[in-house]
Computed example of a mutant assay.
Amino acid sequence: MTGEESSTRPRKIVHVDVAVGSPAARGVVAAASYEARTFGVHSAMPSVTAQRKCPELVFVRPRFDVYKAVSLQIRTIFAEYTPMIEPLSLDEAYLDVTENLKGMEIATEIAEEIRARIKTTTGLTASAGISYNKFLAKMASDQNKPDGQFVITPKNGPAFVARLPVKKFHGVGPATAEKMNRLGIETGADLKEKTLDFLIENFGKSGPYFYGIARGIDNRQVKPDRVRKSVGAEDTFPQDIHSYEPAREGLQPLIEKVWGYCEANEIGAKTVTLKVKYADFSQITRSKTVPAPLPAIPDLEEVINLLLAPIFPARKGIRLLGVSLSSLERRRSETTPQLRLAL
């Protein structure tokens, strides 16, 4: 497709052929390679379980300084093609190449060049989705992972959405997908049949978004250098958690995910919030705000530990934990001393 009304959203695969985590008995998998996933290994899984499912599994401890350096290399490559870059994490971003610095008209050629440059510069593979809006670019990038690309044209967009299960829609989590299924919505075609009023009544402010994407419409712009109000991650556990250690292990991948976003976008956070949802679906939140942005992931872990410890012994089983960061601000360009905070 041409650069007009198009966007690319390459996804960079940082860890290939390994699972990131710790081989310790009480460690958890932070991220799993595609090869590991074929054995049933996934993020937040206890390392001992992962090792049992895949005896040849290779564990690599996280190296955030290296990840950030490689991410910056990739960001530099993006910037050679367009200033319209919206990073989502250390390893993925939206690019708007409608007007690009190379004067290239074909978005698929831009994606091919970028993927080749990433491979040559970093040795990493990348997948890319090319389409005319952010939602479909995201959906397209999932089609040929970990080392390929896929195009969804304006002509094919509505049909692609129509046959896609709503549980695979970007922005539709497990709980929302389950609710949609209860309402008789299992595919994009089913979603398209619902009126805007129906979707607003059942899904609130997300209703207009669902109404649009069911028709292949997503008017969100690629927003370079945006600072979000907050960034968060949460996970529902297969079995309720009753003690501190499993809860802390389950939180680690979430901590790394939100910190990775902040690192990729050079954002600092002063407020940390812990979300706890119990087996009866009641929930609590606990927050702490520090005087200055947290300088490093150990500082975030320390705050989480302080918030988590007082809720034990738990009054009932815990089904979900979440971590969010707010009071976000751009980090200063000058080097900031990495001082431990008095918490």
Rank of each mutant, 00 (worst) to 15 (best):
Q338V: 14
L95S: 05
R220H: 12
R286H: 07
L294E: 06
G157E: 11
I297A: 01
H170E: 06
F135K: 05
P158K: 01
N265R: 14
P337G: 04
A159P: 04
F135N: 05
V303C: 05
N133W: 12
S47V: 08
F203V: 05
G123R: 09
D240G: 08
T176W: 02
E56F: 11
K168W: 07
V48F: 12
V161L: 13
D91M: 07
I85R: 08
I267E: 09
H170I: 10
A279F: 07
S6L: 03
N181S: 12
T98H: 11
N202H: 15
S127D: 06
T285C: 02
I185P: 05
E99I: 13
L343N: 11
I74R: 04
P224S: 02
A140H: 06
T195M: 02
T2D: 14
I74Y: 09
H42T: 07
K12V: 14
R163K: 15
G129C: 06
P46R: 04
K223E: 15
P23I: 02
R340Q: 14
K102F: 04
L321Q: 03
R315Y: 00
P165I: 02
V258E: 03
R286T: 00
G260Q: 06
P154T: 01
A50N: 05
Q51N: 09
R226V: 13
Q73C: 10
G188S: 05
T289F: 05
K53L: 15
H42P: 02
L339P: 00
V166K: 03
K68D: 14
G123C: 11
D225E: 15
R26L: 11
P165S: 07
V60G: 00
V70E: 14
T108E: 15
R11I: 14
N202V: 01
M45A: 00
F64L: 14
S127P: 08
M139L: 15
T38Q: 11
T187R: 13
N305L: 02
E4H: 13
A247Y: 01
P313E: 00
K102L: 13
G204Q: 06
S71G: 15
V272R: 00
A93E: 09
P165V: 04
